[in-house]
Amino acid sequence: MISQAAYATASAKPASAGIRQAVSRGAHLAVMGLGHAYRKSDGMVLDDINFEVRPGEVLALLGRSGCGKSTLLHMLAGLTLPSRGEVVINGNTVTEPSPKWVMMFQAPSLYPWMTVAQNAALGLRFTRRGHEIAKRVPEVLELVDLASFADRNAQELSGGQQQRVALARSLATNPEMLLLDEPFSALDAFTRRSLQRDVRAIARNLGLTLVIVTHDVSEAVRMADRVLVLDANPGRIAEDTEVALDEMQREGGCDRFNAEHVRLMDLYTRVAHGDPADASDDNEQY
């Protein structure tokens, strides 16, 4: 068969690179003058957002509830189009969603009538790469430690396992960037910690760019290379700071970790409970 031969040559490169090394290089992300209002009559939810993310960087968006983090992430994914400004990925303006940058939600959002493997295969199926399913799906399930669950119904898994399946599903198409919207907040502390560690490790091994939305300061400290703290009403970037910790220190329990945690918590508290007068000054256009 022709397709088989073509497949063999096409898959030669990634296969030799191995799944735990950089199969895909991360996306470069630039956000320029981004603003959004859901309705013309409403105020801006987000305003004047500018930032850039290097390929392979892990960025956390930290902000209190309702400041527009999910809105921003939807626009990065191309699931919502901004009313102002643009999102540029690898030099191209985003106008629609793409399996090259995959968003994950707080709920795993698996399809309950499918097995774990069928869920993980969806991206390949949708993008006409069905011939890769047999090889790629076991690979990604292995990556998230769920190889033995392939034929189970998605509903038979625990919340943490389901979130791992969602991760496998997101990784199956070899994306360049993952966009995570508080994906661990519904999990118990132990599961959350292990997923935080695993997701960071997987993203770094694959060289993926990672943007993670959270309102949990320790999650930002554990996972992110850099943190943007968002102001509310309208959402703007109030702080932009690096988290200077190595992989060992990110496990916590050391002075460096505690110091970073305190520093970030301070920044976050100041922004979250900022002087209300500030916010009204910012709204001078209204």
Partner: peptide, 15 residues
């Protein structure tokens, strides 16, 4: 239908 099912499908390239 859970809206996120539709979002996930759209994101993963469903026509």
């Amino acid at each position: 239908i859970d809206p996120s099912w539709l979002k996930v499908a759209r994101n993963l390239g469903a026509n």
